[in-house]
């Protein structure tokens, strides 16, 4: 099966995020007073071929731990859905 994957790489909880903090500080000037807790990460999209979703997930977890994140400062959220047959 083919899956469409979205991997969200985020600064781990408790790790400072100067980019998010800088964006947040600029918000009141634009009138957005109620927007807080800004955190900046990155989104990585890909497709993966695997027998089922669990196997795909396991492979992506491994990929995130070994390459796509630095576990000292980042973690990842993986979401995926089966590609629709055409």
């Amino acid at each position: 099966m083919q899956f469409d994957v979205l991997i969200e790489v985020r600064p781990r909880q408790g790790i400072s995020d100067p980019e998010g903090a800088t964006i947040e500080r600029s918000l009141p000037t634009l009138g957005y007073d109620g927007v807080t807790s800004v955190r900046v990460g990155k989104a990585i999209r890909c497709t993966i071929e695997a027998e089922d979703e669990a196997l795909a997930h396991a492979e992506l977890e491994d990929l995130c731990a070994r390459f796509l994140t630095n576990p000292v400062i980042e973690d990842a959220a993986i979401s995926m859905q089966p590609q629709v047959e055409r």
């Binding site: 790790i15 400072s16 100067p18 980019e19 800088t22 630095n70 000292v72 400062i73």
Partner: peptide, 17 residues
């Protein structure tokens, strides 16, 4: 060297960007 695991820890974006 930190990414390669030869040294511990990590280097982040500087404080205040």
């Amino acid at each position: 060297l930190t990414e390669a695991g030869l040294l511990p820890g990590a280097l982040q974006k500087n404080a205040g960007l």
